[in-house]
Every structure is written in C-alpha cells, then in structure tokens.
Design a protein around this nucleic acid. Structure first.
Lengths: 200, 200
DNA sequence: CCGGTTATGTCAGCCTTGTTGACATATCTC
DNA sequence: GAGATATGTCAACAAGGCTGACATAACCGG
C-alpha cells in the first residue's frame, strides 16, 4: 500500500535503502534553500517550507482524528475540548476569541460535548450571565489522551534535536503567528500551567 | 481592535512595551519546557508546541484565503493549483495521491479551475486515458502570488534564525510527517525544482 | 427602578469540502 | 476481444464554517 505512494513520476522503485538516501538528499536541498532564500529574497518562493508545513500539519491532526471518530466527534470538538481542558473556567466569549468562529458554530459542537458528558457549564459567580466551562473527568481524560498522542509525535520529531534547535523551532512557530494574536497566544501558552505566577 | 484580543482573563491592559516582555517571558518558558519535556517524557503533554503549531498553521493559511476569496476560490482550489503549478504534467491519479481526497472531491474544484482558465488538461502522449494537468498563465501567476505571500511569512519567521536553526526547523517539519509519506514528500519537495538533476 | 448594553442561546438557511456508492466511457494490455 | 485501468459523473449525505434575525436573562448607570 505504500508502494503506490512511494513511486513518483520518474517511476523509480524505492526500497528502504534508497529511501534514506533520498531523505538525506532532500534535507540537504531544503537546507541549502533555507539558507539562501528564506528571509532573504521574498520573490523566490520557499516551496520547501510551504509544502513541509502543509504535510506536517496534515499528519499532526490525523492522530487525534482517528480516536475522535470513535466518539462521534470531529476536529471542532477536539479544539473546544482542548482549550476548555487547558483553561478551566473559560467563558464562551473567550473561547470564541481563541477559536475565531461564530457562536453558532461553537454552540453546535459545544452542545454535543455537554450532552455526552465531556464538558460542563457552570454559571459565573460574579457575572451570572456567563457560563464557565470545565471538562468533566471523561473530558479531561480524553483531552489528555489526545494531547499525549500529539506530544508523542512532536517528541519524536524533536528527539534528535539539540536544545538550541528546539528553541529555534519554538521561535519559528511563534513568529509564524500574526503579531496581533501573538501576545494573546504567548500569554495563553505560558499562562495556564507554564507561568508559575498564574494571573500576573 | 487589538485590545479585545490582547486582553486576557487577568484583565491586564497590554501596551507595546509590556508585549515584548510577555513575549520574552513565554519564549523562555516554552524553551524551558521544550528542553525538559519534549522527546523525553511522552506523558508530560507538550502543550506549548501543540498550541503553537495550531495557531501558526491557522495564520499560515489565512493569507492566501483572503485573496482566493476574490476569485471565488477556496482552500481546496489553492491546494490543487499549487501542486499542479509545482508539478507540470501531473496526472489525476498522482494528484489524488498527494491530496488524499476522493476523485469526486477533486473533480469539483478542478472543474472550476479549468472552467475559469487557471488550469489546463491535455491528454497524455503515451497513455491517452490520462489527463496531464498544467497551469495556464493566469494560473501560474496566481499560484506564484499565493506562494510569495506564504514565503513572506515564512521568511519573516526565519529572518532572525541562523542557518543551523533553519535546518532544525526543516528537520522538525520533516520528522512530523508520517514515515510512509515522508519519502514521497521529500522527493516531491526536492524534485520539481530543488534537485539540480531533475528526475533522478 | 428603568432602560440600554452585554452574554448567551437558538432557529433557519446557505456554502465549501469532504464522504460513499453506482455507473459510464475511453483506452490500454494481454 | 476481454479485462483492467484512468477518468468522469450523478446523487445523496455529513461536518463545520457562515449570515441574519430574534429571544432571554443579567448587569449597570442614572
């Protein structure tokens, strides 16, 4: 089943031996390209990074997808579950800001998560119009399971990377985000469990 | 318009000065986390990388989305246009393999791209059942325009990154891809224009 | 306490992009 | 000539976005 994918337009078969050679070849080419083109001349398209990013993300989300299927959930449910799990007591408005979708779209999946007992909504204490969102035990367990799946992939990908390389990856991803959202994202990433100070 | 997004649960306002401080704080936290957790203990979720990747990809695709809207195209059209532009003479079967969607889904968007004059299909020379796909001048121009947009973002993100850091980013993205698909991806990335030898 | 704003829910309908299943056509290959 | 292959197409459906309009409850300022 891999053969079909492994064969390209040149029609050359690709046994395991040739594969790592090809891998090396491309990594070198990509590195050379990154060195010469990226950041320097914006008119020379960085096709390698663009396609790499596309395929990497595709596989990154494919892991959870398979599990979510068993629960009748989709990617939208995953995102909600994830951010509620990470930010207990999140309000609807805050969640909408993070996901950047409409409340109608959110409500559809949120309703299902609540009905199936993965998320719980409690009225706000200071402002009783608000609904504070929390994961249930089941919800927390599922969220953790999915996060671990993705962590494993990220871990594998960084396994051979030295600390400086990991920092470069983090900086790269951070810099890929729009400046507007960057502050919010960074605070959110560091906040819930990263920052020792909590709400600073 | 940024304020709403820039304010978080702590309610602290966030002027430009505080922003970079926050950014630094998080980068450090993320780096620390990456150092200790990623790759080491798969049971400690790498929340930072996971969320960073999510937000980075979201903004990465948002640039083209805006332009495509003007043409009445969506992301699906973009993907087809991109890979046809990058692989002139691509067959339907090859494109299906790359995108991993059904031929019905592909045909819907491909038909529109052909009708609007962005892609052209020519019968294969050796096998006349095949339809070899090419971009038209308009199609090539649009594909390039979109690629440049994304290149600019990637370029900005890598601007301050030294060559070793860029190599680390490339390696990371490559390693995020499923091993099955990795060979195909690498060959495709290096093949069309990266490898000096063409079809090796 | 009243009126306006805010937080949220909901109904209805639409679009894009994915899916499955079934069937048609032309071409290649043995 | 028969069967496999490359592709097209019709129909129906699902997920997950969107807009617009309207309802309700709670807050807040005067």
């Amino acid at each position: 089943m891999t053969e079909a994918t492994a064969r390209t337009r040149d029609g050359a078969p690709d046994p395991a031996a040739a594969e790592s050679a090809a891998s090396d070849r491309v990594r070198d080419a990509a590195r050379a390209h990154a060195r010469e083109a990226a950041g320097a001349d914006p008119d020379v398209p960085a096709y390698d990074l663009i396609e790499l990013f596309f395929f990497a993300y595709r596989d990154f989300v494919s892991d959870p997808d398979r599990i979510l299927d068993d629960y009748g959930f989709g990617r939208a449910h995953h995102r909600v579950l994830h951010f509620v799990s990470r930010n207990p007591g999140l309000t609807i408005a805050e969640l909408l800001e993070i996901l950047r979708i409409t409340k109608q779209s959110l409500n559809r999946v949120l309703k299902e998560l609540i009905e199936k007992g993965f998320v719980e909504a409690r009225p706000g204490t200071t402002d009783r119009r608000q609904r504070l969102l929390f994961v249930t035990q089941d919800g927390g367990a599922l969220a953790l399971r999915l996060a671990r799946l993705q962590t494993r992939r990220v871990g594998r990908a960084l396994a051979d990377t030295p600390p400086e390389g990991r920092a470069a990856v983090v900086d790269f991803l951070l810099a890929m985000i729009d400046p507007d959202g960057r502050a919010a994202v960074t605070r959110r990433v560091a906040g819930p469990d990263g920052g020792s100070g909590g709400a600073t």
